[in-house]
Every structure is written in C-alpha cells, then in structure tokens.
Design a protein around this nucleic acid. Structure first.
Lengths: 343, 343
DNA sequence: GCGAATTCCGAAAAGGTTTTCCTCAAAGTA
DNA sequence: TACTTTGAGGAAAACCTTTTCGGAATTCGC
C-alpha cells in the first residue's frame, strides 16, 4: 500500500531563529539561553527554553560542527565482516565518549583497500574528529596514512607504521594467564592446541604459555605446540593426535574458543570427563561458544570494550594535543567457568 | 611515549576558497568546475582540478549538508548487542546506497528506552536523511514516533504501529521451506525442535512447517512441536526426549542453528548418523555454527543483507515522496549442506 | 563596424549556529 | 545631580558550500 507523501507535520525543522522570534528575543540571546551562557537574565532564559520546547527545537549539528572546531563524530573503519570485534570496541568507545556527546560513523571496508580509501575520504570530508581503525586479524596492517588531519588509533590490529598509535591485546600475558590458571587448579601436564601459526597472536599466546610453564618447571604435554587452523575441526583432529601420542594429559589450553569446542567434543568422544579428567580453557571468551558448550568454557577475554574505551581516551587526548605513538598492549582477563573449575 | 602535538602538516584543511585562489578564479567558478556543472570552459576546469589536487582539497560535507536538502547520512538504531543482525543489515544498506554516497551512523541502544531516545535525538539533530531501526528480537516493538521529520524503516523487528513501515523475514515460508527440503531429500518422519514459544518467529516457523506437512499428508514426529529455549542445551534435552518417546524419526527441523547443534550432538551420542539416519536442518544460517558443525549444517537464511538493501530502497523511495506503511515480508533462502544431503 | 547572440565568470545570498563586541539602560557612588 | 559601574541584550562576522542572476567579454551575422 503506497500513498503520496502526506504533508509532513513540520515541513521544515524549527531553527534558532524561530525560537528567538517566538520568545521575542534576538538569535544571539536565544543561543546563549539555550547553551547556559552568561549575560542572560533568568526570566529571559525560561522564556527561551519554553519557546524551544514548544517548537521541539533541536539544534542543527551540521551548523554547529561547521562553526566549531569539533564535530562530535568519530569514524570507525573496520574490516571485520562479522562485527565480532567492531561492536564491542564500538560500545567501549561510545561509553568513553558518553552517550550523546559523540556519534560513531561505521564503515566496513570488507578487506578491500580501494573501498577503505573511499570510506576514509568520506569520513574526512565529514570532518570526523578522529578515527579508530579495527583490523580483521590481529597482525600489523598498512597504515591509513601519516599526514591525516585527524588523530588515528589502531585497535586490535596494529599499524605497520611505528609512528602511528596502536592498541592491542597482550596475547603473551593472555597465554601466561591461561597456563597459570590451569596450574592453579592443580594441573601439571598440559597441551596447547592453537590456530594458524602465521598469526602473530597464535605465536604470542604460545610464547606466553611456554614462558609460564618454564618458570614453573613444567614441560608441554605432547612436546610441541599444536598449530593448525582456527577451526573446531582442527581442535578435534589435534586432540585425537594428542591422545594417541601422549598419556596423562590433564589439561588443554586451546588458542580459541572454537578450537576448545572441538577439543571438548573429542575428549567426550574418548570417554574423558571435562574437567574431571582433562581441564580445558579457550581464548576470546566468545559468549556464544563459552556458554553453550557443555560444560561452560573457561576462557581468556581480550577486553575489547576496554580496547574501545582506551581508544576513545587516546583520541580525546590527541585532540587535546597529547599525541602518542607506538604499540600499547592491554591486559587480558581470565573468565573461569566449569570447564576448569569442577565445582 | 608521548610528545607534544607537532604542528600538523595542514593545520587547517583546504577550503574551496583556497582552491579558487590558487586557480585564479572565483569561488563560484571553482565550485562549478569541481562539480561538473556547465558554464565553465574546459581550460578553467582543468586549472581548478589541478589546484584542488595540489591542495588535496576535500569538500566539507557539513557545509554541503547544511545547504543541500540531503545530508547523505542515515541512522541505524539497533538494540542488537552482538551485531549479529545489525552488521549484515548495515552492509546491505551500504550496498544499496552505493559506497561513498551515504554514510551510516550506528547507535546501539542496548535495549534501553532512555538511551534509545537520546540516540534518536542525536541522530535527528545531525539531520540524518532517514532511519533504520533494528530490533533485538523479531517481535513487534514500540514505534520510535509517528511524526518524525525523516522517514523510518523498521527491519527484522516490526513496529507496533501499523502506520510505520516494517520489513521482516517471512518465517512462515521459511518453516515451509525447511520441511519441503526435508521431504525433497526423502524424509517422512520429522520432528520440530524450536525455541521460546513467546517469540512470534518460533510460532511462525512452526506454523509454516505444520502447514507444509499437512499439505503433504504427513504427521509431525513426536506429535507436537518441541518449544523450549534458543539454546544448544535445549536442543540436547529435547532430542533425548524425542528419542525416548518416538521411533523412526528420520529428520529434525531445528528452530535455530544453535539448537540444531545440540540436536546433532545428541544424535551422535545415541549412535545415530547425520544425515544417514537422521537429517537435520537449522535456521538462521549463522556461519559460525553451520560450517563448524560436523557435518556442515543445512539452514534457512533470513537474507538479512537483502533486508538491509530493501530498507535502503524504501528509505530512498520515501525521500522521493513514495511513502509506504505496513509490514512487508521478505522471503528466506534455503542453504543446503551435508547435514541433509548425504552428498 | 555595429547590434545580437553566445560564453564564461563572479558577486551575493542562503543554510543555522556561536561568539565577539558594542550599545543601552539601570543601578550604585560621590 | 552627575558620573561610573554593572548587566542584559543585539548586530554582525565567521564557518564553507552551492546556486542564481547579472555583467562582461567574445564571437557571429549582416
């Protein structure tokens, strides 16, 4: 059912001039009254506020942004198809800026450099106050450019250019944390099954895990890190391999929650209890996997909201003149659940 | 490492005036040259274009939006924490508008009405051209308001107000489609295990499934629809129930991919082969579940990208004066994989 | 060589807001 | 009463772009 456009109730949004006229004052006074500036008497102020309310006046942010130094818009440039990363980061940034103070313009480049350049151009022409760039995988990515007119923060995936500012999760300490937790719950013989070795994150997590083991005087079960792919299927086949090669394994540190899922499945299939016989901990703390798995999966959370929040803070600081460069690592967080804590 | 703000290379972005001055023409001429308007000689045009390139001039979209009728920004107001819905819809909308022609301002209300109102206000003050509202669950939700100055399209979750325009997935035909497919692959005795019965979508999918079964003269295995919750755990327990109550089931239509996951797990646990003994089809086509499951899971896709694309089209049409109202159902799509087609 | 037609270009307004500076009136002081 | 101080309110500029309309310069036809 289609109908011709009815005359919209307010064919034109009310402007400050309309408010001023209704209140019987000048535009300047109306502006001052609405913005809580001085040099306006109390009675005049209420008159103006009433007029504004009556017209349901809403200031034109475009005009404000045109005049002001800040527009109150930040761009979020992502290549993360699923939104798995961008959304938490977005929410953290929103929190840090404060609701209503800043809006986020979200662009997905879909891994395409051309599209990214286009989006970048659009964002700059919209005069965003700053830019957060979120990569799809946690490895260094090309810089979007050195001499942009606005500050840029790279989140999750660092920039290849050391003169940019990047925020990443500290995967080394995350790996440490996982092993430390397994030790704390009394495990001694643990394997590490993880994803694609070409990912820096996989290497870092393994490095942290090995370092912690070494410090505790323990050896890695199976004698090596099982690198493979970030899939449940790999979790399954690696676990089969592990079980056939080694005995007495009492814990597995999986490089992702998906892998952990495959690990648990296979352990169950072999008649082993989790965590009774083997404790399992994942990485990412992806709710959808950690809570639906039987038993609920312990995991390491990368604190993506915090990443977003800090990104927002760094952006604000940069606008205030405090520029930083280099890669900043933010700590992960342990989320223990029943797959490691039997009780 | 922090350093004082270096003098930014271009402390102020180049304006049209700068371009005009460098090209030795007036602002008006520069504008016409850049926008491909007439009344500019070819030589002047190239001069201006060169000047613009040299200054890396980028028009101020704020100023453009201030003067033009359209700003080229649409707001996406969501309550979908995970981004599971918003992102595909966003991508579809982006596709329909064309990259670079329209930007999307994304706001997450997190299910909070106050926050939603705040975001709405912000979006309106930024003079968005239109609004797409995405609900968290596919049931009617309160309208954001009747007399907004911009067109609004509700996607996924329809508005309670029939005078709004809503786009939803056709869950009834989706349910039909699933059953139809199971019949096509030779199944005769199928059960339906689905989620929370308070969800309209659960009811609709069941309705479609039952209608198709009736038309084919078949009965539902187990004698009833297994309503429960949208969890893997429910998929497991419902399947145990089903297996203990009925024999000869050769197919299960699960109301979501997560439920399907639990169903398959339990079938495997009972020594049954999928799809050899029992074929399983899910709903949502959530990649992360459908491809990691062994075997890969057939599913019904709600075509969220299409939803976003159509939303964008309806918004454009509304801006052109062609307003519509009511609820528009968009078809789902079958994605067969190995859990139903033994290959 | 002169009026008319044709191009090309520029001045100026509009779009909505904020801020600076100025004026004017009222209140206070000598 | 005359002068200063204080405080309220307004005019106008600035932010940057697009578009309209009029003016100027060139070309063309005769």
């Amino acid at each position: 059912m289609a109908r011709r456009a009815a005359q919209r109730s307010n064919s034109r949004a009310a402007t400050l001039e309309d408010v001023a006229r209704l209140a019987g004052v000048s535009i300047a006074t109306a502006s001052k009254a609405l913005n809580g500036r001085t040099h306006v008497s109390a009675t005049t102020r209420t008159t103006v506020l009433e007029a504004a309310a009556r017209l349901s006046y809403s200031p034109n942010a475009l005009a404000q942004g045109l005049r002001a130094v800040r527009t109150g818009i930040v761009g979020l440039l992502t290549s993360d198809l699923e939104g798995r990363l961008s959304i938490p980061i977005l929410m953290g940034a929103e929190d840090a800026f404060g609701v209503g103070r800043t809006s986020v313009l979200l662009c997905d480049a879909r891994g395409d450099a051309i599209r990214e350049a286009r989006h970048l151009e659009t964002l700059l022409s919209r005069r965003v106050d700053g830019l957060i760039v979120v990569g799809a995988r946690p490895d260094p990515r090309p810089s979007v450019g050195r001499d942009l007119p606005v500050p840029v923060v790279y989140a999750y995936a660092p920039s290849e250019d050391p003169d940019d500012l990047s925020l990443v999760s500290d995967n080394v300490s995350g790996g440490r944390m996982a092993v430390r937790h397994l030790i704390d719950v009394g495990r001694r013989s643990m394997a590490h099954i993880t994803g694609d070795p070409s990912y820096g994150a996989a290497q870092d997590r393994a490095k942290g895990a090995l370092a912690e083991l070494a410090e505790q005087g323990l050896e890695l079960a199976g004698g090596r890190v099982y690198f493979g792919s970030w899939s449940e299927a790999w979790g399954r086949s690696a676990t089969r391999m592990l079980l056939s090669q080694t005995r007495g394994v009492d814990a597995v540190f999986a490089g992702s929650d998906q892998i952990a899922r495959g690990v648990i499945d296979t352990l169950h299939g072999a008649g082993l209890d989790v965590p009774g016989d083997v404790a399992v901990i994942g990485f990412d703390n992806w709710e959808i996997f950690t809570t639906s798995s039987p038993p609920p999966l312990s995991s390491i959370d990368m604190n993506l909201e915090t990443l977003g929040r800090v990104a927002a803070q760094r952006l604000s600081a940069a606008l205030g003149g405090d520029l930083r460069t280099g890669v900043e690592s933010l700590p992960c967080r342990l989320v223990p659940r029943e797959s490691t804590t039997s009780g």
